[in-house]
């Protein structure tokens, strides 16, 4: 495990080292959440509730998006694609380290920095919101939320790793990764709560792993589901995680086996 811990610590340093990239990333994210916040603030107007969300709950959902997007959707999929396409992945395959674990350590480092920054940004917005936020009083809700967010981050890692592994077979896996990430954010509820969607579409999405990424942790935080149902949702998340962990590991193994290590 030590090798992955060291990889995490080095990746943490590297993320902090790229200060300008980090600041630009954060400013971009902050601008999105600020726009969404202003949009929903204006839309809600004086309405006490909307689609079953109180004003405070809806604005909290939006603020929570900043934290969840930063924690769940931050990853290095593009780096994995680049390393496979350029053949740089070879240097890992001849060393006694599991690439998938290594990539997870690197992802976690980036998630740590971005999530910490997002919490600070949200703190700033909460001050501006002057009380229009919902914070659970029950510590169990916080625990359930942290568990749901952690599972969501791991599911996203496996999904992204799976799509990135396509680089073993096609030099154009950047395209699928881009489309995948865009669709994912929509289907996960990372732009708005999925309750906004027509019932049929909502039900269709419920059968996919995508709501597990943002919508589920956000609803757990807002205590929109009773604790027993929250535990069920966590179990569903764990099921998706197990499935995608297996599939992504199998796909990676198959990719490595067929890897032709460009150049000869």
């Amino acid at each position: 495990m030590r090798k992955y811990a060291v990889a995490y610590s080095i990746a943490l340093q590297e993320t902090l080292q790229r200060r300008s990239a980090l600041i630009m990333d954060r400013l971009g994210g902050f601008a999105v959440v600020l726009s969404l916040y202003s949009f929903w603030d204006a839309l809600l107007g004086d309405k006490p509730s909307f689609l079953g969300y109180t004003r405070a709950e809806m604005l909290t959902y939006v603020l929570l998006l900043n934290v969840l997007r930063s924690f769940v959707f931050t990853g290095r999929g593009w780096q994995v694609v680049g390393e496979i396409s350029s053949g740089r992945v070879s240097s890992y395959l001849v060393r006694p380290i599991r690439y998938q674990g290594y990539a997870l350590a690197l992802d976690l480092a980036q998630k740590t920095v971005h999530a910490a920054s997002a919490v600070l940004e949200v703190g700033l917005l909460v001050l501006l919101a002057r009380g229009h936020v919902f914070l659970p009083r029950d510590p169990a809700a916080w625990l359930l939320f942290i568990a749901a967010a952690a599972l969501a981050a791991l599911i996203f890692f496996c999904l992204e790793f799976m799509v990135s592994s396509l680089a073993f077979w096609t030099s154009e896996s950047g395209g699928p990764l881009f489309c995948f990430e865009l669709f994912l954010q929509f289907a996960a509820g990372a732009f708005f709560p999925l309750d906004v969607l027509p019932a049929a579409l909502r039900q269709a999405l419920a059968a996919t792993p995508f709501p597990s990424l943002v919508y589920v942790p956000a609803r757990v935080f807002l205590q929109k589901v009773p604790p027993a149902e929250a535990l069920n949702l966590l179990a569903v998340q764990a099921g998706w995680l197990a499935l995608f962990a297996l599939v992504s590991a199998a796909l990676w193994r198959r990719g490595v086996d067929s890897y032709a290590a460009e150049g000869g």
Binding site: V6, A7, Q13, E14, R18, S91, R95
Partner: peptide, 27 residues
Amino acid sequence: SLVMGQRSQLWWEIPAQETFRLNQAIY
């Protein structure tokens, strides 16, 4: 060890000693 002249295992943004530290853990 396999060294390929045109491919690097060093981390680009940080000093080489950090890659060495990682290899210490890997090996």
